[in-house]
Computed example of a mutant assay.
Amino acid sequence: MKSVTHRNNVKVVGIAGAPVIILAHGFGCNQNMWRLMLPELAQRYQIVLFDYVGSGKSLLTEYSQEKYSTLEGYAQDIRDVIEELQFTDVTIIGHSVSCTIASLAAIEIPNIVTKIVMVCPSPCFLNIPPDYQGGFDRSDLEELMALMDRNYIGWANYLSPLIMGGS
Score class of each variant (00 low, 15 high):
Ile15Asn: 02
Val10Met: 03
Arg79Asp: 07
Gln43Glu: 15
Ile116Asn: 01
Val113Gly: 02
Ile163Leu: 14
Gln76Gly: 05
Glu83Lys: 06
Ile47Asn: 00
Val117Trp: 02
Ile93Phe: 03
Met1His: 09
Gly94Cys: 05
Gln86Trp: 03
Val53Ser: 00
Glu143Trp: 08
Pro121Met: 06
Gln31Asp: 10
Met37Ile: 11
Ser55Leu: 06
Ile112Lys: 02
Ile112Met: 02
Glu143His: 13
Tyr45Ala: 06
Gly165His: 08
Ser64Ile: 06
Glu84Gln: 07
Leu36Thr: 13
Ser122Gln: 11
Ile82His: 00
Pro129Arg: 07
Met33Ser: 10
Ala75Glu: 02
Asn157Val: 08
Ile101Tyr: 01
Pro19Leu: 03
Glu66Ser: 09
Lys57Pro: 05
Val12Gly: 03
Cys124Val: 12
Arg138Gly: 08
Met33Thr: 15
Gly17Asn: 09
Ala16Met: 07
Gly165Lys: 06
Ile22Trp: 00
Lys11Asn: 14
Leu104His: 02
Lys57Leu: 13
Gly154Asp: 13
Pro110Asn: 06
Ser96Gly: 10
Leu159Gly: 11
Val81Asn: 00
Met148Leu: 11
Thr61Ser: 14
Tyr132Lys: 04
Thr61Phe: 05
Glu62Gly: 05
Val117Phe: 06
Val90Gly: 00
Val12Ile: 14
Lys2Asn: 15
Gly73Phe: 04
Tyr132Pro: 10
Leu71Glu: 10
Val4Met: 02
Phe125Tyr: 13
Pro129Lys: 09
Gln133Tyr: 15
Leu60Cys: 07
Glu143Gly: 11
Thr70Leu: 07
Arg44Phe: 11
Ile101Pro: 02
Phe50Asn: 03
Asn8Trp: 03
Ser64Thr: 06
Phe27Arg: 02
Val119Arg: 02
Phe87Arg: 01
Arg7Gln: 14
Tyr68Ser: 03
Asp140Ser: 10
Ile128Tyr: 08
Ile15Lys: 04
Ile109Ser: 05
Lys115Asp: 15
Leu162Asn: 10
Asp51Leu: 03
Pro110Asp: 07
Gly165Leu: 08
Gln133Met: 09
Phe87Tyr: 09
Gln133Gly: 09
Ser3Leu: 11
Ile101Gln: 00
Pro123Glu: 13
Val97Met: 07
Ser103Trp: 04
Gln86Pro: 05
Ile153Ala: 14
Glu72Gln: 13
Arg150Asp: 14
Ala105Trp: 00
Ala42Tyr: 04
Ser160Met: 13
Ile93Val: 15
Asp137Ile: 07
Asp51Asn: 07
Arg79Leu: 12
